[in-house]
Design a protein around this nucleic acid. Sequence first.
DNA 1: CGGGCGGTAACCCTTTCGAGGGAGGCGGGC
DNA 2: GCCCGCCTCCCTCGAAAGGGTTACCGCCCG
Lengths: 211, 211
Amino acid sequence: MSESAAGMIRVLVVDDHPLMREGIAAVIAGQDDMRLIGEASNGAEAVSAYAALHPDVVLMDLRMPGMDGIEAIATIRAVSPRARIVVLTTYRGDVQVTRALLAGASGYLLKSSLRRELLDTIRDVHAGRRRVPAEIAAGIAEHLSDESLSPREIEVLRSVAAGNANKRIAAELGISEETVKAHMKNILAKLDARDRTHAVTIAIRRGIIEL
Amino acid sequence: MSESAAGMIRVLVVDDHPLMREGIAAVIAGQDDMRLIGEASNGAEAVSAYAALHPDVVLMDLRMPGMDGIEAIATIRAVSPRARIVVLTTYRGDVQVTRALLAGASGYLLKSSLRRELLDTIRDVHAGRRRVPAEIAAGIAEHLSDESLSPREIEVLRSVAAGNANKRIAAELGISEETVKAHMKNILAKLDARDRTHAVTIAIRRGIIEL
DNA sequence: CGGGCGGTAACCCTTTCGAGGGAGGCGGGC
DNA sequence: GCCCGCCTCCCTCGAAAGGGTTACCGCCCG
């Protein structure tokens, strides 16, 4: 086990699923130009692991308990703007991916990817190329234009998803019911939803709110 | 690489994520009492792989494109009632798990499980023990009693999730709006939901309807 | 500095929900 | 046979939802 051989791509993997980490580790272990130097199972661990190890490439899952991937990416990039981070996600068409790329991720990878794609992406990103499939890039442009809800609207929608009536949401947020209705109107228009229930299912599908 | 050594637990892994399969393969490869003899990436492949290989234990993901895990479990068990199948799932508290166990699965494993738990479960199930965590068993009893929706109610709820009003649902299903309302009343009562939106989020969380 | 956007709020009006009831047919289980 | 769950349908009625419109404030960006 040589300590940091020259030319080796040093990889840090961050995922809350041990078996997934194991799979990635196994794939990387079979390559002679890269090496897994660390693992983390949530955002906070990822940040400190990055600080301690300074890996060449980070593979980062988005949905994790505690600090999530987006926050971790933003934190890492704030300290080390040159950090190369590849986003790992289960769902195709997740707006979280958009946020991750805006937060500074250089690549994107579905968890359903093949071994080959994983390796290619690691090498490409390490070489300084951004690796974002065309389908995703298109999705980003689309979502950024008209489908982004304001923070307040997201708050309202989250409360709607919890089964709260406008009156109750108004009390919760300390605003009038009329204002909640105004927000709802905007939400329905932005998401092109038929009613509040539809808005919630669309938002969940897009990753705007969690379940 | 010895061909079917005596006492070896022969394992088939079914999952649509190649990296997850890789992880499981890596974990099993490190054990001297078990061996991975095959992989499949969906239900249909799982059924034919089972028929061809007759593994001792099957690790089966539930959410897969094409034929899903539940169907595959039922099909395999219909032909080979002694098949030992362990369900792999990402989500805690998924009613799909209940269905899988009813379809004949012997064990249940979260994808966030540790290597140790994976191995213990494979060995236990191979030894003929059922491996269902107490939390899950309790959840099953709970869900089976009062929270199971009738087929018609699920149809209605699915349409509600798509953003349809009662009138439209009535037209879709060829029944009167009054009947849709009656179904909604039952749904709200069974799921203990505050309104239709809440009912939908609860049902998604429980795996009663998909997104 | 004007215009756009987010957040707040109010009005009117129609439609839809959902909580009460009740009620009949139909199937399976005790 | 009887009861129970499922599916169907009916009535009433108050409360919510949501469409339309208008308006003010603060902020940032061009």
